[in-house]
Amino acid sequence: MTAKRIPRLGIGGPVGSGKTMLIEKIVPVLAAKGYNAGIVSNDVVSREDADRMRHNLATEQGILSEDLVIGLATGGCPHTAVREDPSMNISIIEEMESKYNYLDLIIIESGGDNITTTFSPALADYFIYIIDVSGGDKYPRKRGLGIETCDLLVINKIDLAPHVGADLTIMERDAKAVRGDKPYVFVNSMTGQGIAQVTEHIIRDILFESPPKTVAKN
């Protein structure tokens, strides 16, 4: 029997921009509100991100079970795995949907890639693109499909801005110019600054403020 589709959140961004840590920060906030998430982590050359999230979120914090964090190799083509040929991701997610139908959300982390990353709509219902200030304040202005078309732009590591000569007002101005009315959030994942806002977007724009499945059942 085909399982019902569980809302899917895609998170993409360049190598080192903070995709994994963003997930490590938003999952506990969602869990505190009763929402259960599963994670598929696409990695370019290792399973390190999946192992780290499994250790942190499952083994250490006990927020989810260890088998709900799945690592996926991408043959060196991270963008292909989430856009042109998402078949391996879709297959794994469909297996999760039939095994863990109580999940409220499945998060798909793309392997680190360039600014053209986007998610196939067949794979993800909502797309967060994350950049960090250390790449310079030119990043939003440079556009690229990821920055332009994502549902939510996250600008991470804002505490580093003064140290790398990045001007947040320029990044904000350019994000508005490039994205129009579409939202962006300034985040410092290390301290948790901005994480609540990101989570609010997820609950409102992907989960449509429906109650967690475990709550709705009782």
């Binding site: 190799a73 043959g75 083509c77 292909t80 795995a81 042109e84 040929d85 998402p86 078949s87």
Partner: peptide, 11 residues
């Protein structure tokens, strides 16, 4: 190889 079967990810 454009056909979506994920074979690009297999060695």
């Amino acid at each position: 190889s454009f056909f979506p079967t994920g074979m690009y990810s297999m060695s």
